[in-house]
Simulated scan of single mutants.
Amino acid sequence: MKLSEKLQQLKALFGEMERALIAYSGGVDSTLVAKIAYDILGDRALAVTAVSPSLLPEELEDAKIQAATIGISHQIVPTNEMENPNYTSNPVNRCYFCKSELHDTLKPLAVELGYPYVVDGVNADDLHDYRPGIQAAKERGARSPLAEIGVSKLEVRQLSQQLGLPWWDKPAQPCLSSRFPYGEEITVAKLQRVGRAEIYLRKLGWDNLRVRSEGDTARIELAPEKIKDFVLAVDLPAVVGAFQEFGFIYVTLDLEGYRSGKLNQILRVNSEVRSQKAGGRS
């Protein structure tokens, strides 16, 4: 299907909804959904951003600016996933509990304000990754227009650029809890430590990065082609000193570089090991 046809289908989908509340993180996916919803529904569309310690303050500011640029009404609500031990213990399905909290907050709000639909920014590619949060959203009746129409991540960016959205190439920025290996407890202090470290590196001019946290060790992930430049251009002792002020003891650089979905690599490895063991039984 051509991109223009997918855009028309998205517009038609929102036309049928009459009123919609958008789970709006400020990322490129949900922002595209908010843009199309506003173009079709106008004041009958509402973007709602959930705020918790796992959201970078700069991401919230971006969300506010982008919503104002689009023109869509924008509300901010708190969520309390950090009070749920099923979330803070950081199991492999942590995102299920995060999205459960999100949609348990948004659905009653939508009912109260008279919005029959809650929609999110899940795209077609997300359906092929390990995303337990998608199930939590579905269980609570949320819809995913991009996934329903079959819009990929690349097409999200293409449509965003076509519609004149200046952040069409904005790097993906999942919640800060994704910086921790499964099984390591998540605390507000740890989230703040990671957030401050990433903001520090961005202010130095580096983007599309992650600071992974494991115990007292920070592991910096950059785009592979940027690793050599980083080592040569950055005052490494200054970076180490800054990270130690944030609360880390050790600071490392990942030589493989940043790769989306890297956190789930251990899940695939464990699955392969289990399969090999099962296959070796007589």
Rank of each mutant, 00 (worst) to 15 (best):
2 K>P: 14
8 Q>D: 15
9 Q>H: 11
12 A>N: 13
34 A>S: 14
35 K>C: 11
38 Y>N: 11
39 D>S: 13
43 D>Y: 02
44 R>D: 15
45 A>Q: 04
46 L>I: 00
46 L>D: 07
49 T>G: 09
53 P>M: 06
58 E>I: 04
58 E>Y: 12
68 A>Y: 03
70 I>Y: 03
71 G>I: 07
72 I>F: 06
73 S>F: 03
76 I>Y: 06
82 M>I: 15
85 P>D: 13
93 N>H: 12
98 C>R: 00
98 C>W: 00
99 K>A: 07
102 L>N: 04
104 D>C: 06
105 T>G: 02
106 L>C: 06
107 K>I: 15
110 A>G: 04
111 V>N: 11
111 V>M: 12
116 P>C: 11
118 V>Q: 01
123 N>F: 01
125 D>G: 09
125 D>F: 00
128 H>Q: 12
128 H>Y: 12
129 D>M: 07
134 I>S: 02
135 Q>K: 15
135 Q>A: 15
145 P>T: 00
154 L>F: 13
156 V>E: 02
157 R>Q: 08
160 S>F: 03
160 S>P: 08
161 Q>E: 15
164 G>R: 04
168 W>D: 04
171 P>H: 05
173 Q>E: 15
174 P>V: 05
175 C>A: 13
176 L>G: 03
184 E>T: 13
188 V>I: 15
189 A>Q: 14
194 V>F: 01
197 A>I: 08
197 A>R: 04
197 A>F: 02
204 L>F: 04
207 D>N: 15
208 N>T: 12
209 L>H: 05
214 E>L: 11
216 D>Q: 13
219 R>Y: 03
225 E>Y: 09
229 D>A: 14
229 D>M: 09
232 L>W: 06
232 L>N: 08
233 A>K: 12
233 A>P: 00
241 G>V: 11
241 G>M: 09
244 Q>T: 07
248 F>K: 01
248 F>Y: 12
249 I>T: 14
250 Y>N: 12
252 T>G: 10
256 E>T: 10
267 L>W: 08
267 L>P: 04
270 N>S: 13
270 N>C: 11
274 R>T: 10
275 S>V: 13
276 Q>D: 15
282 S>F: 08
